[in-house]
Amino acid sequence: MAYLEKKDAIILLQDGTIFHGKMVSTQNHATGEICFNTGTTGYQEIFTDPSYYGQIMVTTNAHIGNYGTTDFDIESDSVKIAGLVCKNFSSDFSRPAADKGLFEFLEDNNLCIISDVDTRALVSHIRDHGAQNAIMSTQVNDVDQLKKQLNDTPSMKGLELASAVSTKEPYYFGDENAQYRIAALDLGVKTNILRNLASRDCYIKVFPFNATYEETLSFNPDGYFISNGPGDPAPLVDAVAFAKAVLEKQHPLFGICLGHQVIALANGISTYKMHTGHRGINHPVQNLENNKGEITSQNHGFAINKEEAQSNPDVKITHMHLNDDTVAGIKLISKPCFSVQYHPEAGPGPNDATYLFDQFIELINTTKQETI
């Protein structure tokens, strides 16, 4: 399916910088925090990852769309990014397994797409000046009006977005006859996380972002999981209360990305907004417990306070990001709980960290034995 005739378009950043490109979508206007992902593959998984909700995505790979889309590569029920900015957008694809082209897939989701952008210059600007709000539009001759709209766009700092992507009602995933029962708090969970748990003989009940610990008890879970998701972790008071209740009862608890930040907050460790964040599939992490390196998939714009984690007597830092020395994983000394800032389920990305799901199962088995 050929895409529409290209129209002149601009990307206006909060600091007043303008980048020019061509609009290739029917939807011709979008706002959100602009960020970039350095992955060379996996664009469909990225675009449907709930952690990117409300963000304009700049892809550093020069070609986007050339291998189409498949139903299997969808990480949620719809496209979650606010807009796409790329260098070369292809409506043609050559992947035999593809169900449709990327243009058709994004048009079905009413996504704003700008191509023919100098993405190297744009990414360099974001890297130097930080992730910030932006507006993409075909109103190239009305910059003053766009600036007014941009000023009305809320900052990602302090913004609660989990409620926009979380399930409204509990649902189940996996085989109900599986050995382990997991209660998952959905802050924006990726489907591949649930697949990884189900493949390890888990039956998962997924709860809304504001579920209480008491609401999970009838499911009689063997372990608890807090998912990834978008936005600032600080406003998630219900999720923090959920984590505190699980920890107080000494249940096994595993957190990923936003879930990792929620667990940190539940233990008195603050979070902060990063300059640009980590978004890509080749981020180096060191496992401090075995001194091995991992190449990881990451997607986050907030991190936990390293000094506060180090000074907390019940917290042990288990993983560190080797590029900027930020905390990439922690575990609690007195409670059966651990979390990581990155995505062990990948999708897209390497499989270096899938052992963490096995570690979660081991934690469940150990906790069961200790309570017998």
Rank of each mutant, 00 (worst) to 15 (best):
D324I: 03
H29L: 14
V315D: 13
L84N: 01
E45R: 02
H20T: 09
I34L: 12
S339Y: 04
C86T: 11
H275G: 09
Y53I: 07
Y203G: 00
V143G: 09
M274V: 01
L106C: 13
V165T: 12
E214T: 15
I81E: 09
H125C: 05
P221I: 14
E214N: 15
C112M: 13
T26G: 10
N287P: 00
Y180C: 00
D118F: 09
N177P: 03
G280K: 13
F173I: 13
T17V: 14
D324E: 05
G259M: 03
I372H: 13
A303N: 15
A97V: 10
F47I: 15
E75C: 06
P96A: 14
F209A: 15
D358E: 12
R120G: 09
D152I: 01
N351W: 05
K22G: 05
I18H: 11
I114F: 07
N210K: 07
A183M: 08
A164L: 04
S115W: 03
I330F: 11
A211S: 15
E160H: 06
G268C: 03
Q14Y: 10
L288F: 07
D71R: 15
F209M: 07
A30S: 15
G188W: 13
P350E: 04
A241D: 13
N151P: 01
C257Q: 04
D77R: 04
T367C: 15
H260W: 14
I304N: 08
N110K: 12
T167S: 09
A234V: 11
R279G: 02
I74C: 10
G268R: 06
Y342F: 15
E248P: 00
F19V: 10
R195F: 06
N141T: 12
Y43G: 00
G174M: 08
I226Q: 06
L247M: 13
M274G: 03
T119R: 07
K100A: 14
A241C: 07
F36R: 02
D108T: 09
F219G: 10
R279P: 00
L102Q: 04
P350G: 01
D201A: 00
G349C: 09
A9R: 02
F207C: 11
N210Q: 08
N210Y: 10
E289P: 01
I295N: 12
P350D: 08
H63P: 00
P208K: 01
T38A: 06
D222G: 02
G268E: 10
C202F: 08
L288C: 07
I11F: 03
I18W: 08
S51Y: 07
T354C: 05
T59N: 06
I256V: 13
L150N: 06
F103R: 00
T216P: 00
Y224Q: 03
H283F: 08
Q261F: 08
F302V: 02
D99C: 08
L253A: 12
A245C: 04
T367L: 12
K157G: 11
I81W: 06
D118Q: 06
N305Y: 09
S90I: 11
